[in-house]
Each structure stands twice: as C-alpha cells, then as structure tokens.
Nucleic acid binder design. Structure first.
Lengths: 297, 297
DNA sequence: TCTTTGTGCTTCGTAATTTGCAGCGCTCAC
DNA sequence: GTGAGCGCTGCAAATTACGAAGCACAAAGA
C-alpha cells in the first residue's frame, strides 16, 4: 500500500534505531529516508524522533504515533481480508500468543477443529509468557492472547475468563501418589520443580507460600513444562501444571492432584485482545470458537 | 497530511457521487483523480466504486474502506491532539450530538463548566434525533452522542445510561394543575402536543398508548420542545418532556407531573461513542465529566 | 430521432516531486 | 587522534503525478 509507505518507513526507523540502517533494510538511500522523515515531522507538526549521537529513538510523540501506525496497518489488513472474504474466498490468518500449558493438547485440537471448517485459514501460534503475550498484543504482532493470570487485563478486552486449579504432578510410584487429597505443604516436603517467575503458575505458587511458614525451595527451575513432566517421572520430585496442559484422564504414568483454592489460588485463564480493536474475520471467528471451548472447561 | 491524500480523495468521490464533481471540489482535474482511484483500486486488490452511467457509487468493499478511512482520519487527529497536549498546550475540540431536551439547561451548563477548566477547548454541539445522532457517530462527525432511547445501542459503547421519567407539562392555570398525581389517561383527555416519531419521547408515548384503550390524538405534532413549552402556556394543551429539559424547580408558569413508569416507560438517557474508538483527549475528558453529572441526575 | 449534457477513461507533453550521490560536521570508541 | 558511524544537505537525474484535450458511451431533452 503506497500511502502507508512513509509510515512503514518510520516504523522501520523506530525498529532499526538508525536512519541509515533502516534505509538499508527498506532498500532506499539514507538521504531519501532522512528527508521523508523530516517532511513528515514538518507536516505532522512535531518531531517524532530524538536525535542521538549514535542514531535516533522515538520520543513520546513518536511512541503515540507508532501505535497509530501499527493499528492502521492492521486495520487496513483487516479491511482487505474482509473484502477478500465477501468476494467469495474464505482466506485469512490468525495470529495468537499463548501460554505453554495451552500448547500440548488444547491449542492443537482447537486449530484443527477450526481448520476443518475453514481450510483456507493459516495460523501463527506463539508460545509467550504473560508479559510477552501482552507485548505482542500491543504491537499488533498477535491478534489474540490466551494466557494465565494476565498482568494488565484492564488494558485489553477480556473475551472470556475461567478459573483452573493448580495441579500437582508426580510419578504414579511417588510416595504421595496413593493419597486421596493433597495439600500444598505436602508437596513442599519433596523436591519440586517450578517455572521461573515470569510464568503464571509460579506467580500463584509464590502468592501461596507467601502466607505460609514453609518456603518455596525449588530443586529445579525450568521454563519447560515438557521437561517438568518427564523429570518427575524419574524420581520423587513434584511438578505443577494447569489441567488444560495435562491429559489427566489417559496418562496413567502420573498421579494428579488438584490443589484446593485455599492453598493455591486458582489461575485465571483469559482470552485477550487489544482494547477496542476490530479483529480480522478469521481471528474473530476463531476467538468465538475458543470462547465456547474455554467456557466448557 | 499528505499520505492521506488518496484516501481523502476517495472519500470526496464517495460523497460527491461522481469523479468529476469530486475533482472540482478538491481542486484537481478529473483525469488525475481518476487515475489515482484506479491506481488505488489496483493495489488495494479490488474495485471500490461501482461505475454507473451517471457517476460512481461505493460498492460493498468501498463501504468497508470508507469506514476505515474515516477511522484512520480521526485517529490521526486524535494522535496529533494528544501530541500537542503533551507539548504543553491544552487545546482540542469536542464534537457532540444530542437530543433537543439537552440543549436548554444541561449542555450549556456542562460546556461552560468544562471550559472554565480548559479554555483552549472548542465545541461543536449538534441537535440530532436519535437516528441522526447514531449516524453522526458512525461517520465520525461527532465524537459523542447524548440521546434518549438509542436505537442500536449494541453498535456503540455506552459510557453511561440513566432513566428519566416522562413529564407532563402544562400551564399552571390548567384544570389538572391542582392534582397531586397525574396518569397518562388524564392527559389524553386534553389536547396534547407531541414530537414526531423520530424523537425518543414520542417512541415512549407510542409504546404506552399501544397497551391502552385510548389513542394518541395529537392536536399538534411539533419537533421543537421550545415551541411546545410556549404553546401549552396559552391554553389547555399538555406537552411532554424529560426533566433534564425542564427547569422544574424555578419555572412557576408551569405545572409538572412525572408520569409513573407503569403508565409511560421511563426513557433511557445514554451517552454513546463509536464502538472501540479511542476518543481525542478533550472529548474523553468531557465524556468523563458528563458521565459524572448524568450519574447525579 | 437527434442533439445535448454529463459520465468514466485514455493519451501525451510537461511540471513537480522524489531519489541517489557525494560530501559536511559531529560524536563516540579505541 | 583517528576512524567509523551518525544525521543532514546541495544538486542533478530519474521518477512520478498532473493538466489539457479528446474518445466512447449513456441518459435526458427537444
């Protein structure tokens, strides 16, 4: 789209941090780019970049502008997709950021169910911790985010939100595996493997131990639930995960215990989008499907 | 803003209904305009206008596009205003559409209260019936709409909404003026002056008489409440208005009777904005002030 | 029925704009 | 103190957009 050219160039400069670098990226000369930016700043009425000795950086006005640029870019894409849609073709692309727990079972199932109805639609699925997921929404890199315990939910539209308990995961040969009910303090007696603080489940665990005499003493801090699951099979360690990331019904190598809400607060699984944004058709439809599935959890 | 030029031209064509007329409006030749449109359609990937024997008209794709154009335009203005704001100047413009009842007392008071704090802010206040007010929001002609009984409130963000009873207005020398309570059927015994169907209060009256044996038999249909107020002073006629449009406490030439909800359903006074739109700073602040005042009604 | 008017679209020479090249002055790292 | 990297600017070349005129067509009017 030609009329967006200048705006795209500005975004490129913002990313590259230097006019010359951005010029190279965009295959024009730095002089041309430089003058376009100066021209734009003139008619915009205010400088957009701070000039530093080693390059440029967005000033506060530029931060506002870049947000506008990204929203316009994505809205134009939405319009084009919608136009393509009404001329008959069911194409489109869905871009979603989600927690690790969503990856093994839930998301693959949802994507294939959706693609059964709409084979022309393509997907980008990004694993992101909750902060990165929100960042993705802000920069329009993802249309949707499905995460536990979103930090700034007021900044986004929450399409749906459900609670899930934290589940303790251990080998079925574990000494505790025969119990009928499990408390958090029982788990802390054994070596435990927990994710780093950026991950929602760790946040909940930290909240929980904060009001206990015992302390979290992680044998292993691992940011892969996959790793955790396999690790607990080989010893007495205990891991933690949400039900949506487990196959509690069918995987009998493990013992699973939902921890009561009074021990560890339940996690809020929320489907978010950028506040007030009109999503592309494909993403909006997929969001609807997700909302229905999540409500059934 | 140069990069919007093509989009503005498209909007002008959509309004003028003909390329040549729009060209004249925008002070360029029709050939230039024609080529720009063709160029845009080519890179957009689909035609935007239907070619008719006597001109052009937006096709469905064009309708989507024009919406995008208007939102883009207004969002850019918002960004520019916000930038001006953070460089120290408190300028801005608020554009609001509202029902007639809002004009005499409420809106003037609110505007002057706001301008006491922000003298740099200018206002456009448009009197609109509820349909035209919604149309104004859609076309980004107004930032806000304050109307009774909005028709399609699902299409908009409702910032606040309160109920107001319908008030019967008559001269203080009217035979009914001495009563302590008034029912709708009492009013219908006398000549009544009501607004045309496009106005919210008429809609409520029509609803009310629909479930009665008596019928609405308007002596006078007038779209000016101002007219109505003065008319009822000179005879036995009865008019209807919302409290917000009256000075019930101080104007003793009249007798006022709130009609009970079971007779005439209360009207919902709602403050609306375009769904998901980020308002310019000035409008957003004014909306906040309005919401507070309305909540106190 | 024939003319008139108004439409979108095209061609072509020209005017306006944008680009690339080269070079300036500057700051920071080594 | 020197070189690399930065933003910025003059100037000529290249690209792009423009205006004037004219074509084909369709609807309205005489």
């Amino acid at each position: 789209m030609k009329h967006l050219q200048t705006l795209l160039l500005i975004e490129a400069v913002a990313i590259a941090g230097s006019i010359r670098k951005a010029a190279e990226d965009m295959n024009i000369t730095s002089s041309a780019l430089n003058r376009r930016i100066q021209g734009f700043e003139a008619e915009f009425g205010a400088p957009v970049f701070e000039r530093l000795p080693r390059g440029v950086r967005l000033n506060p006005a530029g931060e506002l502008l870049i947000q506008h640029i990204r929203s316009q870019k994505s809205d134009l894409e939405r319009v084009q997709a919608q136009v393509a849609d009404l001329s008959g073709v069911r194409r489109g692309h869905v871009s979603i950021a989600c927690s690790q727990a969503i990856q093994p079972y839930f998301m693959p199932r949802e994507v294939s169910e959706y693609r059964r109805e709409h084979p022309g639609v393509t997907f980008s699925v990004h694993v992101r911790d909750r902060d990165r997921a929100e960042e993705d929404l802000r920069s329009y890199e993802s249309d949707l985010a499905l995460v536990f315990e979103p930090r700034h939910s007021a900044e986004f539209d929450v399409l749906i939100s459900v609670e899930q308990p934290v589940v303790a995961v251990m080998s079925n040969s574990h000494p505790l595996a025969t119990k009928t009910e499990l408390r958090l303090r029982d788990c802390l007696e054994f070596p435990h493997v927990v994710p780093p603080p950026a991950i929602g489940i760790r946040y909940l665990l930290d909240l929980a131990v904060g009001r206990m005499s015992q302390k979290l003493d992680p044998t292993i801090e691992a940011d892969s639930f996959e790793f955790m699951r396999h690790y607990v099979l080989n010893g007495k360690a205990i891991g933690f995960q949400f039900p949506i990331g487990l196959d509690t019904a069918n995987d009998d190598r493990f013992a699973f215990f939902s921890l009561p809400d009074r021990d560890v607060p339940h996690g809020k699984l929320s489907l978010l989008q950028m506040k007030g944004r009109t999503l592309p058709v494909a993403s909006a439809r997929f969001a609807n499907q997700l909302a229905l599935s999540i409500a059934d959890l």
